[in-house]
Amino acid sequence: MADTLSLDLGGRVVTVAVKRSALARRLSLRVDPVRGAVLMLPAKARLAEAERFLAAHRVWLAERLARLPQTVALTDGAAVPLLGVPHAVRHVPGARRGVWVEGGEILVSGLPEHVGRRVADFLKAEARRLIVPRAHAMAGQLGRKPGRVSLKDTRSRWGSCSSTGDLAFSWRLVLAPEQVLDYVVAHEVAHLEQMNHSPAFWAVVESLVGDPRGPRRWLKGNGAGLHRFQVP
């Protein structure tokens, strides 16, 4: 079967990702803030069945897609949150200073076609500068030492801890409020001591950053929006 199907939503043609699963018992359709529309099929479902299912859910799909946050290109004039605080991207071609923050703006020198890439590189570097020392410091509070600490652009999780103690975080956490970034770092560091989500695990998290309920609520309500910023 094709990996995608196209559907006309009243003049707007959308692409729906199609996935098969041996565990799926029926067809299901969901709208993901990052991937868009995804149609899950049982292993033996036919293409014609999938097409009929999409057609029957055309109105539902259009409504859900309309609710998704609009994507934001990292260009001159864009509003980009840095630790949760909106900053306007401003292109200053003659400055020859790379990228820097000043007066509530992210200033970018160089050619206009390089603005997006430079802002993205700056945000990733800021994420590394803020997250890596925090991870080591929090691990030290527990008498632990993490393995490799890396940054990625993960879609389904904000952080992870491997069985060998390697930690990974989404660089997009630099867009979230600082207490949210702190919470995610503490969450993964706590797994160095408790590789579970037991009461003992949450006690470790709380010992590192206090009550985690506020940051968890923020991520649940706002986390998907961090993926709307497009990286060249």
Rank of each mutant, 00 (worst) to 15 (best):
R12C: 12
V209H: 07
V108H: 01
R228A: 06
D153W: 04
R58K: 15
Q70W: 10
V174L: 06
A135Q: 04
A73F: 02
A55C: 05
K145I: 12
D182G: 07
L208E: 07
R25Y: 00
V180S: 12
P232M: 05
K44N: 12
D166N: 14
L142G: 03
I106M: 08
V174C: 06
D8C: 11
T15L: 13
V85Y: 08
S162C: 08
P69G: 03
V180W: 01
R67Q: 14
K220R: 15
I106A: 11
R128C: 03
T164C: 00
C161K: 07
G223M: 09
G223I: 09
M40I: 13
V92D: 11
P232W: 01
V184K: 12
A95L: 07
I131R: 09
E63T: 08
E113N: 05
A78G: 01
V204G: 05
V185D: 05
G210I: 03
V149D: 06
E63M: 07
E51M: 12
H114T: 13
P86L: 05
H191R: 12
G147H: 02
V101Y: 05
H57K: 15
G147F: 00
A24P: 06
A137K: 11
A17N: 14
G36L: 13
A48I: 10
L47P: 00
R58A: 15
G110H: 03
S28W: 00
S162T: 13
N196D: 15
S207G: 14
G223R: 08
M195R: 15
S6Y: 13
L23Y: 04
L192K: 11
P81K: 09
V13T: 15
V31L: 14
H227R: 05
E102T: 07
G104M: 08
T164V: 06
L82F: 09
L123D: 04
V180I: 05
T75N: 08
D121W: 03
L142A: 06
A24F: 01
I106L: 13
R228L: 08
W218E: 14
G223A: 11
T15S: 15
L83Y: 07
R12Y: 11
A200Y: 00
K124S: 06
N222S: 14
R117P: 00
A200G: 13
P146Y: 01
S21D: 03
R129S: 10
G36V: 10
V72D: 05
V119Y: 01
Y183W: 02
A95V: 03
R172W: 06
L27T: 06
Q230I: 13
R128W: 10
P33F: 12
D182P: 02
P81R: 10
A45I: 02
H91A: 00
R30E: 15
A24D: 04
W171S: 10
G210Q: 04
W60Q: 11
T71R: 15
S150C: 03
A73M: 11
M195Q: 13
D153P: 00
Q141K: 14
V204A: 10
R20W: 01
H57C: 04
A186M: 04
R52C: 03
A137C: 03
R129P: 08
Q194T: 03
P81Q: 08
T15Y: 09
V99S: 06
G103E: 12
R134E: 08
L7R: 11
Q141F: 00
P215R: 08
